[in-house]
Amino acid sequence: MIKVENLVKTFGTKRAVDGVSFSVERGEVLGFLGPNGAGKSTTMRMITGFIPPTSGRVLVGGFDMVEKPTAAKRLIGYLPENAPAYSDMTVYGFLSFAAEVRGLRGSAKKQAIHRAVEMCFLEPVLHQTVDTLSKGYRHRTCFAQSIIHDPEVLVLDEPTDGLDPNQKHEVRGLIRQMGEKKAIIFSTHILEEVDAACSRAIIIDRGRVVANGTPAELRRRSELAGAVTLRVSGVNGAAVRERLSQLPTVKRTTILEEDNHAVTARAFPKSDVNGVLARSIAEAMQGWRIEELHTEEGRLDEVFRSITMPDTAETQEASKKK
């Protein structure tokens, strides 16, 4: 549904977006990650046709955004960053305007408004003017505007920004559920949302795509992925370290925590021992009281940090070891 080819946007001499390519099909929810100023919003603005790309192409449902903007825009629902809304209108008036612009009239319009109001829980503020709304409600109003015509493509720039935890949960659920039938792109700084809602994620940094894969794939890129964490009681750290380092599957061992009762340690695998590390450790610990033993999946925040800040990630890892 969405196809982005070699998108470039320069502001003056600055390349805000620098050769971004990806595509999103129906049934996919693409999470868009990246540090502040990475170019997420700029990319989304080009996808939705708000700003023209310096070079490259955006196709939405087969329509080129530059050549056939109206046809392409008809397919899109867009929640811009900061959720702008006409401050002098009531929530109902605003949604009614959005529905009319999308060509909905009469009972179709009423139904669409009703549906969007229900999905975004706007009932209590329906007749309040937008400038008297709290930030979260304003955000939801703008979100409602983006789904009012049940679009095939949704572009959401930080849809959970400013929402309370319950609403965040609702919106993630909504995105996941809508993602079954639509093509959705949403940007976020909250990495749990990637797990909660995305089928795929892209990390972009300084205008370039630096990672693209399912959440599980990304997590596997973490240094932690595949490491085994264990907690053994009744022994001291030195003994644990010694036994672990004798194993042929273990590359390196760190003691995370040690007290009178128990030791928590982490063993990192040699590169080619995928999967067997946990078993080999369990066997090596025969006779000790193992309280906990599990293989780490890897953490997204660590992947994110190591990809977008390659230098500092290592130093932080090092300081953790001490």
Binding site: R45, F50, T70, K73, I76, P80, N82, P84, A85, Y86
Partner: peptide
């Protein structure tokens, strides 16, 4: 100023 221009110009109108 209010940013609604971003909504307006991404709607299916010219």
């Amino acid at each position: 100023r209010s940013g609604t221009i971003e909504l307006l110009l991404t709607m299916p109108i010219t």
